[in-house]
Every structure is written in C-alpha cells, then in structure tokens.
Amino acid sequence: MLFYDCSTAPNPRRARIFIAEKGLTVETREISIAKGEQLSPEFRAINPRATVPVLVTDDGTTLAENIAIATYLEARFPEPPLMGTTPEEKGTVAMWNAIVEGQGGMAVAEAFRNGHPAMKGRALPGPLDLPQIPELAERGLRRTHAYFDLLETRLQQSPWLAGDSFTLADISAFVFTDFARVVKLRPPETNAATQDWLTRMRARPSSSL
C-alpha cells in the first residue's frame, strides 16, 4: 500500500490515526498543501480531485476519501474493530461519523477557508480557485460553537461517540475538535464530558500523529 499524506491538514490526519490504531505501517509520501503540491499534474494523475488523503492498495486501487480508506482497511484488517461489529454498531458508527463530518468538520472548514488570509482564493478544497465569502466564515464560527454543544450533549450520554467503544467516529470528532484551533476556538472548559473524552483521546499514542 502507498499512503499520500499531508502532515498539516486534518483529513489526512484522520486516516493517519486510523492506520496507526490498526497497528499498520504503510509507505507514505508527503503532499504539501502549503506548496500546492496537490494541484501538480503528477498528483492529479493519481487523484484528479486534487485532495488528500489517498491510499493506493496493493492491487492498484486508488481510494481518495476517508470513509473509503477506513472501510477498506477495516475489511482487510478487522482487528481491532474501529467501525463496529454488529449491524447496529456499524450503523451507529457510520451515523456519528457523518454527524461530526457535517456539523464539525464542515463548520471549522467553512470558518477557516473563508476567513484565513492563507486561504485567499482557495475557499474550497480541490482543483478550483474560489473566492472567500466573509459571511460564511462568521457562519462557520457559529456552527463550530454549536458543534461543541452537540459533542457535550452526546458525551454526557455515552463514553465514546458511537457507544461503549472507541471508533472511527471518535477519530473524526477529535481531529475536527483539535483543528478548530486554526479559528481560535476550543471546547469550553465547563464542558466536563468533552474534556474527559479529550483527555482519554490524548492519552492514545495515535493522537500525537
């Protein structure tokens, strides 16, 4: 397998943590978003959508979305299970992963890409150069606050996002929560359930990747 990574971006970090939690060592190539390497003809020959992460499997299949990479690795390396074992667990993990992507990841990305000077002209990932919209940056900040509230409510009910076990949903939620630092937001210290979950997440060796 060959993994195309970017050490500074949140989505490749999600895949990186998933790979580590599976106990795998995968050949890796760094693609610098800061240098625009994802837009190079060489990389777009691998992924025309010009996004990372990308995993190329042993048979040459190219997987260019986090959920695709996780699904493949879970099927090929089922232990430890990170996407549930029963039909109910699998559905719950998929549901919470989608929730945190939509309510957390998209919110932080909206604020960052539309508000940070480094993202001028790059308001969305991919091959198109698109202008920033300041109103979307403000909306993203409000949505990120709502995401923190959503996390706290859920974690008051469950030790992990999708139930009693650590899963892909926790990886996604942790990465998005941590990445909110780029828009100068953190979960409130008064969100006790979230702070406990963050402590447990940071205690995992993979969290430092």
Rank of each mutant, 00 (worst) to 15 (best):
T57K: 14
S172K: 10
A111F: 06
Y147V: 01
A109K: 06
P159E: 15
E79V: 09
M119L: 08
V26A: 13
P205M: 00
T194F: 06
A34K: 08
N66Y: 08
P53D: 02
G104P: 03
Y72M: 00
I46K: 14
R113K: 05
V175H: 12
D164G: 15
I46F: 06
A137S: 14
R142D: 03
A180C: 12
P117M: 08
W197D: 04
E152Y: 02
F3T: 01
R113V: 01
K90F: 08
E42G: 10
M95E: 12
S40A: 12
R204V: 00
P117Y: 09
E135S: 09
G140A: 04
A192D: 11
F179C: 09
I19P: 01
H145W: 11
Q156T: 01
T190W: 15
K90S: 02
A107S: 13
Q103R: 11
A146N: 04
P80I: 00
A193H: 06
P187H: 08
E152W: 00
R204A: 13
T62V: 09
L128W: 10
P41W: 12
A68E: 13
M95T: 00
M83Y: 06
A98R: 15
V183I: 11
L73S: 11
Y72D: 04
T144Q: 10
T199P: 05
T199E: 15
F179V: 02
E37A: 14
A50Y: 04
D58K: 04
T51N: 12
A98V: 00
A70Q: 03
L168E: 15
S40C: 07
R143G: 00
F3G: 03
F179N: 07
W197M: 05
D170H: 07
D164F: 10
T8Y: 09
D59S: 07
P12F: 02
L185C: 13
A9E: 00
E27G: 13
K22L: 11
V52L: 08
P131V: 02
E110R: 15
S7L: 05
G104W: 03
F179H: 10
M201L: 12
C6F: 10
S158W: 06
W197E: 06
M83S: 10
R13L: 02
L161F: 07
A111H: 05
I69R: 01
I133Q: 09
D178G: 10
R186C: 00
L82W: 02
R13T: 05
L2A: 12
K90M: 11
I17K: 03
A173R: 05
W160M: 08
F179W: 14
G60S: 13
D58A: 12
M201Y: 06
E65G: 04
T199Y: 15
A94Q: 11
G104M: 07
M83E: 06
P41Q: 14
T71C: 07
G102D: 07
R13Q: 04
L128Y: 13
R14A: 09
G36V: 07
L128S: 09
A50Q: 05
P131A: 01
P188W: 01
L161V: 01
